[in-house]
Design a binder for these strands. Structure first.
Lengths: 221, 221
DNA sequence: ACCTGAACACCGTTCAAGT
DNA sequence: ACCTGAACACCGTTCAAGT
């Protein structure tokens, strides 16, 4: 029985811990992530994690930054803010929707997390370089985050029970079809996001015609 | 020592449990709400709660419905969808922003909760009665929920650390002023919400001119 | 019906002990 | 440096016991 207390090659690494934590969260939700369960998944005992992270929250922080690192901000490179905003928002939503259980944690903002700050820098910088005053650019970035985080936080369509008897017409005269929403979850949620994003950008362009290139102004839609 | 096992008047009620739970969540966050802690706050022992709710999640459900019950949907009564949408969204955000720690839970949708369903019925019904096709009305309601939930989930401004040294200009060339955001939290967050909401409604009106009364069409802003 | 304490299988985290 | 088991103060929930 030679149970090594310390192998020559470390059993764990921050990367492996973070990757496994994200898998666990995606598969079973945030409450399923306990240090003991995560350690078991990694083949070690609970306290081992504390050699690589000082707290469970620090692990979650690293998981959150991994998710944000997937967001693509290249759409700002062309210099057109509408293209940039649309591309950023779509990639942002795709990244978050792939890991909905992490979204509440992400809503705490970038803090000091490098990937979060890189994204904020690119989006804010892209808007400013396209001519937006800094204060307005800040607001636009904020509203995109609101919309994206809200849309990735939970499905609208699945928020309604798939049971025709759940919505008594006497109480809720307009919800007669609500039980059908769950079936069309993807279409409803993606349609709402895309329609809303377009409306947001259209509305911003309407209020700031001076920032819309004259070529586009002829055909604003 | 006559420690009564059962007093003639019940010590607890669902209402009292829910109200105390909400206070605790607001003051100390979701993780602070444990059944033992909540019971202590109510002056009883932990298991007593199970005489009134079958599970902790059921308590959270009731808390969530209490929050949604504060949302005012009267703005739809005039029959104008833009007035309705603006009023609903503002009241919705106010209700959620007063209890940000409950927002992740609310994102699960109304399910079978009566206040959630009443709100959905009024908003969806208001849009349909203003002339919106049901499928489009659904999307509009969804996008409002996205935007409101995202904006109430966490402050954008407070997402950045209030420390000038946190954002190295070499790494983040555009975030030189980011550390000042926290100071202006309210203005930034409320400004972003209000600007975004207006843009959303403007953008929707732009795509659906047939649903805008001719009186308003002359001065669309 | 409604409260209690004891008990179950869990938590996050610390720490002394091993190599 | 990096892993271990034991231990601490916590969890949600069940249940037999009291009135």
């Amino acid at each position: 029985m030679c149970v090594m207390a310390r192998p020559r090659k470390p059993l764990l690494s921050r990367e492996r811990i973070v990757a496994t934590a994200l898998e666990l969260i995606d598969a079973e939700g945030l409450p399923a992530l306990s240090t003991r369960r995560l350690a078991a998944e990694l083949g070690v005992s609970g306290p081992s994690l504390y050699n690589h992270f000082t707290t469970k929250d620090e692990i979650l922080d690293a998981v959150a930054d991994t998710v944000i690192a997937e967001v693509d901000v290249a759409a700002f490179e062309g210099g057109d803010w509408r293209t940039g905003l649309l591309g950023w928002a779509r990639s942002y939503r795709a990244a978050l929707a792939a890991h909905p259980h992490v979204v509440p944690y992400l809503a705490q903002g970038p803090g000091r997390r490098p990937a979060g700050l890189r994204m904020a820098d690119a989006a804010f910088g892209g808007m400013v370089e396209a001519g937006w005053p800094p204060a307005q650019a800040t607001r636009v970035c904020a509203m995109v985050r609101y919309f994206v985080a809200g849309s990735a936080l939970g499905s609208f369509a699945r928020g309604f029970v798939d049971d025709p008897g759940a919505y008594d017409p006497a109480d809720y005269p307009h919800l007669g079809q609500a039980h059908l929403l769950a079936e069309h979850q993807r279409q409803v949620d993606e349609g709402a996001f895309e329609t809303g994003l377009q409306a947001l950008v259209d509305g911003l362009a309407l209020r700031h015609p001076e920032l819309v290139p004259p070529t586009d102004r002829a055909r604003p839609l």
